[in-house]
């Protein structure tokens, strides 16, 4: 389990990185925290001829809320940084991200793994991919010709596949609006494993009642998905249990050694209901007090 040979390049800035990527073409791979990539390289399941290390691009290591109220997360921000971010950095309405970090691997993985790396890796069960899709994040991508800002929904094309071109670099993840009543929950046989099924619910609560919300699922399709039918139940004043049942009926999860389609559907039901309950109970004030 030793990686195949490669040439190592240390990136100095974003522009230089995309230039270099353009030169190297398909055989190059960007490495940030490397928590997924190095494992795949050790198995020789990934064998890039060139590795471009962006670890030194400090400008991509930032976290904070802008004047527009959007949370901007630099691609090199580690899960651990988000997990331990104080309220004044994370801003109001984004504590869901902090809570969600506990589901990502374990402390040493979170200490090294990055938000951008996770999204660019595009694992269908990854927490950040699901959070990005469910909470409507935008992804800032730099290429040799300039930048583009992409909605997270549509970014993922399939397992480990995204719209990112070989010469492009994901630089920033933008969560445009607060999600004060949101929660991520998931199920895996062991804590810290890739989820069999994961769910994010982001409730729109006003005047003490649920007016609607977003429902996102991981592990039920090749990419994280939103479930409009379940969202419609929330918008129509249905119960969390109804929402969960509709979500379960709306998806067609895979059938493999990890679990049957029927069981995964039951998990969708369980997790959506749990996420709804947690989301409804989540308030920024309580969260602020806990930290």
């Amino acid at each position: 389990m030793k990686p195949a040979p490669f040439r190592y390049h240390r990136a100095r800035d974003v522009h230089g990185t995309t230039q270099l990527l353009a030169e190297l073409g398909e055989d190059a791979k960007v490495i940030a925290g490397g928590q997924s990539l190095v494992a795949m390289m050790n198995f020789r399941l990934a064998r890039p001829r060139h590795l471009v290390d962006i670890g030194a691009l400090r400008e991509l290591d930032h976290l904070g809320v802008g004047p527009d109220g959007a949370l901007r997360i630099g691609a090199l921000t580690t899960h651990h940084t988000v997990e331990t971010a104080p309220d004044e950095v994370l801003g109001t309405g984004f504590a869901v991200l902090r809570r969600a970090m506990g589901w990502i691997g374990h402390l040493p993985i979170r200490a090294r793994g990055t938000v951008g790396g996770s999204i660019a890796h595009a694992d269908a069960t990854a927490e950040w991919c699901l959070l990005a899709v469910a909470l409507g994040a935008r992804l800032r991508v730099a290429g040799p010709g300039g930048q583009r800002l992409l909605p997270a929904e549509g970014f993922f094309l399939g397992p480990y596949t995204s719209v990112l071109e070989p010469d492009e670099l994901l630089t920033e993840i933008v969560f445009p609006r607060p999600a004060p009543h949101a929660a991520l929950t998931e199920f895996a046989e062991r804590k810290g494993d890739f989820a069999l099924v994961s769910a994010v619910v982001d409730l729109d609560i006003g005047a003490g009642r649920v007016r609607g919300g977003r429902v996102g699922l991981g592990g039920v399709a090749p990419v994280p998905v939103r479930v409009p039918a379940a969202e419609a139940v929330l918008a129509g004043g249905g119960s969390f249990a109804e929402c969960a049942a509709v979500a379960a009926a709306a998806v067609d999860p895979p059938d493999d050694a990890g679990g049957s389609t029927a069981y995964r559907r039951q998990l969708v039901r369980a997790l959506v209901e749990r996420a709804c309950t947690e989301a409804a109970e989540a308030t920024e004030r309580r969260e602020a007090g806990r930290r």
Binding site: Y8, I31, Q35, V38, R112
Partner: peptide, 8 residues
């Protein structure tokens, strides 16, 4: 703490 096997 980090995994020294997941880092070059």
């Amino acid at each position: 703490p980090v995994r020294a096997c997941l880092m070059f």
